[in-house]
Amino acid sequence: MEPPKVIASTRRKPKKRVRLSKSRAQPRSVAPQLEPGAPSDFDLMKAIQAGDPDALSQLYDRYNGILKALILRVIHNEAEADDLLQEIFMEIWNQAKNFSAQKGKPLGWMVTLARRRAIDGLRKKQAYARAEERLQNEIEQQPDAWVHNATEEEIVLSDTRALIRKVIKGLPPPQQQAIDLAFFRGMSQREIAAKTNTPLGTVKTRLELGLKKIYDGLKELRDEL
């Protein structure tokens, strides 16, 4: 498999960018690569912890699309997803002091936070039925390509996404479904068993096998990125 292509930058430089120290060696991530010299996510988090709004602005530019996609995948409502996205970035600003580089990567922390908020929102609304219907429509209508004046970061991200999707799509459909319901719907094993009319032990096995395959696949992916 080819490594992600780094396209020569034709991207507009933002008017104001905080110049932070260059990326230091950190645990390798499946996250998209950054331009040489661009502040790492860790640098941005440190600047946010120091109260620098421009660092939050940069982090927003870098990840709003990913986090909104995640929220949308859970709640399936565009306007609510936008509102939640704003609340989540505000929470990132407010809770930045609780982020510790020793415990993981900024993107992982943000995704965990966004997922929890989105699932809480879904539960509060008790909108499972509507979400399910919209989910089905989206699955049927979702185009394969995401192409709108793609920037360099978006192109690299697209390569990363393709590689991760390849890992996930390599799973048998029942394993994909179990993981999807657990991660994006916040369902317990019992809830998945009831929803899919499957014995609890089978659901557990599907989750364990599927997650292990993805975890192992990501290890190989990290070597390729």
Binding site: P32, G108, I168, L211
Partner: peptide
């Protein structure tokens, strides 16, 4: 294992947020 969170999020096609949000 939290890399799984990152991976699931990155497997999705990024969505465009309303410009008013930022």
């Amino acid at each position: 294992c939290y890399a799984l969170h990152e991976a699931f999020a990155l497997s999705l096609r990024p969505a465009k947020a309303s410009s008013a949000i930022k």
